[in-house]
Amino acid sequence: MNSYNIEKKDMNILLDRFLEDYKVFGPTRPGADSTFDEITSIKQLHLDYTSTVLPPKKFFHPPKETLFSFELKNDKFTTKESIQDKKILILGIHPCDVHAILKLDKFFSTDFSDTYYQNRRKNTVLVAINCVEPSEHSFCSSMGTGPYLDEGYDILLTDIGTKYLVEIGSKTGQKLVEGVNLRKATETDFHEKERRLKLMEKKIKKFMNTTWLPRIARENLDHEVWLDLGEHGGVDGSFPCLSCGSCSLVCPTCYCYDVYDTMDLSLISGTRNRELDSCQLLEYGEVALGDNFRRDRKDRIRHWMLCKFGAAAGGKNSSCVGCGRCIRVCPSKIDLTEVAKVIRGGKQR
């Protein structure tokens, strides 16, 4: 595939090209609390962000969505699916998030295909950007999902000083840059990319040993760490879990959702909706007649961690990509990587 470079000050040219065909979304604030929002001018774009609150998952598997509407006519219900086919482009996705999307792609297509996810996904162009400044919570290098990307993108940008290196990853990507006056990338550009990414990798301070991790997690269902996290004082400087669900809601690979109907006041029409759910919430494990399969907090936090370690039903498709969002967002300062150390037999401080 082809490669180009573009002066940072000329990025508006590329953005204008994107805006011709797509609604463009990108990080709108610097720092770790950025959000992916609609971008209409280059001034709104902050490609130097370190992380966002919600991952780009929200574009394909949104927090809330309508599956179909229904209406009662002559004693029979008719349904009308609400399929989104808006074309969008997400600009500035980090490698970890691209990997998360690849996992969700697999998850939502195996066995049964999820129409809603697939539809949104196929109408989306991903313009990724390699990380040159990690957030303090990232451990992507341990998970093999960053800090640089070699798959899953339509276009890949890398900050190489005053310029971006622009690498094309798909036909859609190639088509998008045709007609834009970009220079061919030089050998020096690639050397600079190499240099910066090596430097970046050294800046990552968090690690998680993933060797045999799913198996170790499965074999430690009764480890005391779960009780510590759920009810006692927490682990390694953390507080006990609040069961607030934040970790799973900001996780780029968490997929669980709830389905419910709403009827409008006419009582003859309404919608079936789905909403992101979290295994940390008490209601998640409820079944008929008030029974609950994960009533204890320790069971809920254990279930989530197992899922992220690749030891739950989602398998690799729902396991961690090392983006660090759950660590940043946890009011109790619970750190997945520390828990992994403890179940591996490490000492608690």
């Binding site: 389905v259 899922c307 739950a312 989602g314």
Partner: peptide, 13 residues
């Protein structure tokens, strides 16, 4: 919630 292995609610191990 879904019956097709997507909503996550029925996970057991």
């Amino acid at each position: 919630k879904c019956g097709i292995g997507k909503c996550g609610h029925c996970q057991i191990g």
